[in-house]
Design a protein around this nucleic acid. Structure first.
Lengths: 133, 133
DNA sequence: ATGGACCCTGTAGCAACTACAGGGTCAAGG
DNA sequence: CCTTGACCCTGTAGTTGCTACAGGGTCCAT
């Protein structure tokens, strides 16, 4: 596309996003709707590339779309103190910690279940037994 | 409810499930549809309680509904060798291990981001910077 | 002018529930 | 006997974060 603007496919490739996902982000107003060409194609400006990169990076770090929205809003207001940003990140961190803890507990249970399996018949399978009431 | 049968609410309470979830399990044919009373209420037998307890316990251990379905099928066939049960459990364990690894990597990134935050203004916030392209 | 790669809208699907709306049933108390 | 409130019924739509069509239009090179 001419004049430094990008098609949706180019934007998607540059950010490692699927085209449908870009349109989805527009629909839920996470990414601003771009100008259209004469043929009704979306024409993205460099700001859109920045914005979408930010979104992808946040998503890769496991922030929810609501959290990403909040981070985007905050990042636009350059003079504001960044305590709120910190709070979102810390909240997410403790969420991740909780998930890790849950999964580790689950892992212990699962693996002790598996260790007890003698691989005989289902009738005396310790795994089935462990799952039964 | 009389004669040792349970209402959906009783079954739900006994298994720590929501009533809607019990109905959902019936709709997707994970839990067999029970008899009905004269007033069209579901009347669950003790087998249903066993079955649902098994489902809940499996779900709590993070098995997917498809995996639970497979485990239930296997557990019904008492004479079959239990290798298939073991395989499902091991597959799930490695999935859990992968998730733990992913979350730990993510945790490291998040927490180093947070450590760098000086809590000044958004303009020089390291978290926003780390998320920006 | 025609082929193929791309783009458009709109809708439906995934997992695994959860939350109504709008009704019917049942048991206890007055 | 009647009412009240707790429970039950069906059916549908919402949640999160996409993904996958269907059925069309556009653009560019050959």
């Amino acid at each position: 596309m001419s004049c430094g603007s990008l098609t949706i496919g180019e934007l998607a490739r540059l950010t490692g996003t699927k085209v449908e996902t870009v349109r989805y982000y527009e629909r839920i107003r996470l990414l601003e709707a771009p100008m259209r060409t004469a043929g009704n194609y979306r024409a993205y400006a460099p700001e859109h590339l920045n914005r979408l990169s930010f979104i992808r990076r946040s998503r890769d770090l496991g922030f929810s779309l609501d959290q990403v929205r909040a981070l985007l809003d905050l990042s636009d207001d350059r003079d504001r103190p960044c305590g709120a940003v910190d709070a979102i990140a810390r909240e997410h961190l403790s969420e991740v910690d909780r998930k890790i803890g849950d999964l580790q507990a689950l892992r212990r249970e699962l693996s002790s279940m598996i260790d007890q399996c003698q691989c005989g018949t289902v009738a005396d399978c310790r795994i089935i037994e462990a799952l039964s009431p």
